[in-house]
Amino acid sequence: MSLGKYVQDKIILILMNGIGVFLLSLYLLAVGNSRVTVSLIAATWIIAFLSWAAVNYRGRKRYFDNINRLMSKLDQPYLVQEFMENSWRLEDQLYREILRRSNKAVVERIYQLENEQKEYREFIEGWIHEVKLPITGIRLACHNQEQGNNRRIERYLTELDHDVEQALFYARSDQVYQDYIIKETELKAVLLNVLKKNKYVMIHHQMSAEVECDGITVFCDGKWLEFIVGQILLNAVKYKREQEGRGMISFRAEPTASGVKLMIRDDGMGIAAPDQSRIFDKGFTGSNGRSRGKSTGIGLYLCRKLCNKLGLEIGVQSREGEYTEITLLFPKHPFLSKLKDS
């Protein structure tokens, strides 16, 4: 609240007082008072009015400054009404009551939306678990009958499975903290699992793979890590160089001063330099995505989100037409490492 704004707000009052002083002075002069008496009376009026205005301005300014300060401190500013000081002014009381009622409506609405969202998420999760049953069934049936179509069905199943997993992790990604177990995990076991899971897709696309990380362990949740690596692996398959027909992906891990570094490198089409900083953004498809036409812009976004939640760093290096290398950094946790040593 500035002085200028205050004056503007009280302009009618000021004008009325001005006119009042003027008319009173005229009258007093007309009935034969001396100029000195009249000026004295007028000055008293003006001083009294200005003092009132000054006190009023200060009081109002303090009141609103207080509210503003409260607002900036609250992490949910819409609840400010609960903390507002009591005021004897009728207007303040009326506004406060209005705010209270409006807040109540907002809070109810938020609660309702949160509930709806939770129900929706639970439904999606439940549905995903339901749909896993028939996938398992088809897979078993496929394995049990020896016929030429199996490989093709297996491949489609892998893709279906991948999409379903993606949906599940997307639905869960906001509440990772509820569902992970950080334990010492052998990196190689995780990588081999991912490769075997995607065996049919990889072989079909003539991909080969190398794993170099014997004996390296990290502190991480195996399930989430498998998902992250799986996303990266399928990207390598999706964006291999077309003309050669075959592709290669290598996993190499090495201990560093601050933890363990896992480098996942493919010899695919690479990522154009201007796109590199944006590949982890939600919905970003880039020129590669557009040319292959299968990109959703969700996979790597989820990877980064999950990495953040798990405390991993994810980065990319690439040269167009040559390679893409995704780096995952597992920080060494002093507490966990100590547990291991003892």
Partner: peptide, 27 residues
Amino acid sequence: GRNTSIDELQAFTLGGDDYISKPYHPS
């Protein structure tokens, strides 16, 4: 079918020898 960490943890603490989640590969 529900691969949550709680299930996994409980499976091992109750004396299970291994834990595998659907949809698993037959091999």
